[in-house]
Structure formats: C-alpha cells, structure tokens
C-alpha cells in the first residue's frame, strides 16, 4: 500500500543521503521525496512517498527513526491528511491547440505562467492523481516537457508534526 511519511530531520550536510542510502540499502521503494528547511532553519522536513506491506512500512519507520539525525517520523496515512504536488508542464500552443490548452488549464485550475509564440508553461497543483489526470487528458503529442515536485503532505486539523 502507498504511504506518505513525514520526516523531521536535522538540517545538516549529508542527512539526505543517509535517508536515501537507507532506502536503497534495505531495498525499500521511494516513489517520491521532497525536502526543504522548515520555519526553524536548523531543521528540514521531508515527505517521502513509498509503498510496501504493513511490515515493511513499520520497518521503514523504525529504520528512519534509528538515523541519528532524524528527529521525528510520522506516517500521514494513519489519520486524515492533505497532500499536494506541483507540476510545471510545457505544451505546444500553436494553431487550434493554443485555445484548447488554455481551456484545459482552466478546467484543471492550472495557471499559465510562461507564454511564447509556440508554447505555454502551465503550473498545476493538486494530488498526484489530478496531475496524472491532466496529463492523460492532453493529446500526448502536445506535451513538450513535464516536471513534478513529488507530494508534500500535512496532517489535517490539530495533528501537528513539530519538535
């Protein structure tokens, strides 16, 4: 099953490689990983999307906690949570496609953030499934380039991950 792990980790050189090294060394999957410093600059927060059986997810959580620099780990799937991912997608926008691309962006609540004579770059935020759906809805031949951040997640309501 797919799980989203939120990890608070010391903002130190090499901390990221300890996490990714752990996943590769033990044969765990990383579907996506995002990381940035938090409001406290000494600490970073990662969102790791992974999948595996319950036993594997339990081991991943324990192994992450074992890393000296990891402050806290939570599995967002254990309760209500929100996740968002950002995609930038560059599409061909010429002839009849130009109007169609604008319409599609509007339907998906995307924003066109760069315009040239031949292309649009659309910014789209949502769950991974929404971004997938957008890509699927387009004629594949118009897609010039895509880049996605991977999911960021946060617990709903009072559920707070903090030191």
């Amino acid at each position: 099953m797919r799980h989203i792990l939120s990890v608070l980790i010391e903002n130190e050189a090499g901390a990221l490689s300890r996490v990714t090294g752990l996943f590769s060394a033990r044969g765990y999957n990383i579907d996506s990983l995002t990381v940035q410093t938090t409001e406290d600059p000494t600490m970073s927060r990662m969102t790791i999307v992974t999948h595996g059986s319950e036993d594997v997810i339990e081991q991943i959580t324990k192994q992450l906690n074992k890393l000296i620099e990891v402050v806290k780990v939570i599995d967002l799937n254990e309760a209500d949570h929100i996740e968002r991912e950002l995609m930038l997608i560059k599409v061909r926008a010429t002839g009849k496609d130009r109007e169609e691309m604008k319409r599609m962006a509007d339907i998906f609540r995307g924003r066109i953030i760069d315009v040239t004579e031949k292309s649009y770059t659309i910014e789209l935020t949502g769950t991974g499934e929404k971004l997938d759906a957008f890509i699927k809805a387009l004629d594949q031949s118009v897609i010039l380039e895509t880049v996605r951040t991977g999911a960021s997640g946060i617990g709903r309501g009072e559920r707070i991950l903090k030191l």
Partner: peptide, 8 residues
C-alpha cells in the same frame, strides 16, 4: 534496545 530489531 533497538525497536527495529523487533518484528523484523
């Protein structure tokens, strides 16, 4: 002492 040893 190591939680990751348990239920591994």
């Amino acid at each position: 002492i190591d939680p990751s040893s348990i239920a591994k």
